[in-house]
Design a protein around this nucleic acid. Sequence first.
DNA 1: GCAGGCAGCTAATGGTCGTTAGCGAAATCC
DNA 2: GGATTTCGCTAACGACCATTAGCTGCCTGC
Lengths: 198, 198
Amino acid sequence: MGRTGSARSGEILAAALDLFTRLGYEATTMADIGTAVGVRGPSLYRHVASKQDILAQIMTRTMEELLAAHRSALAGLAGTAQDDPVERLRRATEAHVRYHARHRREAFVGNREIRSLVAPGRARVLALRADYERCFRDLIETGIQAGRFDVTSAQLASYAILDLGMGVAVWFREETSPDEDAVVWQYGQFALRLVGAH
Amino acid sequence: MGRTGSARSGEILAAALDLFTRLGYEATTMADIGTAVGVRGPSLYRHVASKQDILAQIMTRTMEELLAAHRSALAGLAGTAQDDPVERLRRATEAHVRYHARHRREAFVGNREIRSLVAPGRARVLALRADYERCFRDLIETGIQAGRFDVTSAQLASYAILDLGMGVAVWFREETSPDEDAVVWQYGQFALRLVGAH
DNA sequence: GCAGGCAGCTAATGGTCGTTAGCGAAATCC
DNA sequence: GGATTTCGCTAACGACCATTAGCTGCCTGC
């Protein structure tokens, strides 16, 4: 449960992430995860507290990383000449899409398995997600008030932009998809068009 | 397995749809479904072949309805004065979003539980989905060639538009969300902006 | 070289679940 | 009104699964 687990527990989280992505949380067994790291199922309990705890660690870490990526994308902008609502939304969307392309398994599991996450972890992840959504909504509302965006509902627009990222995590494949940078640029463009930026 | 089941089997499909949406396919038990229709788990087998068959019926029917909605949305347009790529994409997107708002549980399950669908049903649903995706891609490619859309990758744009609909199925609630017509109109607008329609 | 703990194993526990078997009552058909 | 089908029930089977108990070998510190 410690913040920095052993090397083995890192391997286990990685293997579990892969299996959760392909089979889903409910359908993957501890024995599956064990096999993936070259060990029998029960041996996993030397390194992790429970199957549920594996999921909780994956999901909270993912949401924290996503929020960190968002903040760091906007941090470099504060005080510079291009610090306006349009540029801020572009950067935020690009960071969003880049995370979903680069960490598609984390994002995929993070979004699809909330149903399987129980009591304390679930509330934590939902709170982080609500924070993240509010960041985008605020960005868009600010842009509307500054007269730079032309859209009636900041709520709908932010849902739309966030959902675009989720979609990327579903279909993006490192081998066969367009270049990550191309996707990131295109989706940043999509977001600005969507809110009618000018 | 018959195309037109008894009244009871309709109830069962409806109850299963609700439970699959809330708990997921793996997490709902036959006993859960039974309780929802006022019957014990084993009694369900008088009306359905298996749990897996329930899922298969829900998913194939959903994809067929979605394709039918798409075709009927475009059918009324052929030969009229407004039959151009922009209007066609608007209609297709509006039908897409309307279906996802009005049948959010069907669309939600249809998209999230493909992993749980096995051999024959899975291929069938994936084929229908591929057909549906191709409809949108073709619509966008035609618009690009006609010089009405300004977008480099029809592939990316169609993914983006389709994903917007999926998003609607996730957050839309009849009671608390904006009016269905408002969402449909707004998302149609989003799609046209996204491809740079003019 | 040896004591202790780290990290694996097998076996077992307790529970759940999809599905089948077999029975009985009520409705339906002729 | 008797025979048959329909549809429910309980009991049981067989499989699987997360987790725990208890054992063993190996590496490490001294």
